[in-house]
Structure formats: structure tokens, C-alpha cells
């Protein structure tokens, strides 16, 4: 058995997918359940870091198993998301503080 059919690839990919999905749901649940805007930002960064990270690692493993060689290109999505997340978070946090003062 080679490629994606082998349990050595299938089991980690399946586990990573399930974990990523659950983390994303919990993160978004935080967006609904937490009471203040500042607290909600923490829930969002959960789905954006580990939730997305699990899916991306699963994608790298799966495409490498299909192509029978290391295919790292999904990791570029991680790079972009990790580099850009602080800029969005910082601007939104400042916007909320500024608008909170005005009200």
C-alpha cells in the first residue's frame, strides 16, 4: 500500500482534519459567546492559528502522499496568515478603543 491509502498517511490526516474543525468551531463559538469585543478577539485568533494550522499540515501531508514526494506549497498560506494577523488585530483593537472613547 502506498500513497494516500496507507494508514501511515490516512490516520494523521484524518486526526488533523477533525482537530482543526473542532478548534475552528470553538473559536467561532467564542465570537458568539464572549461578552466584550476585546474578549471576542481571542476566540478568533484560536481558529486562525491552530485551527487553520491543523488543516494546512493535513493538506501538506495529503498532497505529499498523493504526489509521492514532499509538496510544501500549502505552508505558504500559513506564512501569509501568520504575518498578516497582527496587523488586522492591532488595527481592530485600536479602532474599538478609539470608537469606545468617542461614544
Amino acid at each position: 500500500m502506498t500513497g494516500i491509502e496507507s494508514p501511515w498517511f490516512a490516520v494523521p490526516v484524518a486526526l488533523l482534519l477533525v482537530a482543526g474543525g473542532l478548534l475552528a468551531v470553538v473559536g467561532s463559538l467564542g465570537l458568539v459567546r464572549l461578552r466584550t469585543f476585546q474578549a471576542r478577539m481571542h476566540g478568533v485568533s484560536m481558529g486562525g492559528t491552530l485551527g487553520l494550522g491543523c488543516v494546512i499540515v493535513a493538506s501538506v501531508v495529503a498532497s505529499s502522499a498523493i504526489a509521492q514526494r514532499f509538496v510544501p506549497h500549502a505552508l505558504l498560506v500559513t506564512v501569509f496568515v501568520v504575518i498578516t494577523a497582527p496587523a488586522t488585530a492591532m488595527l481592530l483593537m485600536r479602532a474599538s478603543l478609539y470608537r469606545g472613547r468617542e461614544r
Binding site: 482543526g20 475552528a24 473559536g27 467561532s28 465570537l31 478568533v44 481558529g47 486562525g48 485551527g51 487553520l52 488543516v55 498560506v77 496568515v81 488586522t88 481592530l92
Partner: peptide
């Protein structure tokens, strides 16, 4: 922001 990150995943 959350919507697009989850859509991407």
C-alpha cells in the same frame, strides 16, 4: 475576518 479564515480552511 473570521468568515474568510474559515472559508479558506
Amino acid at each position: 475576518d473570521t468568515l474568510y479564515v474559515n472559508g479558506l480552511a
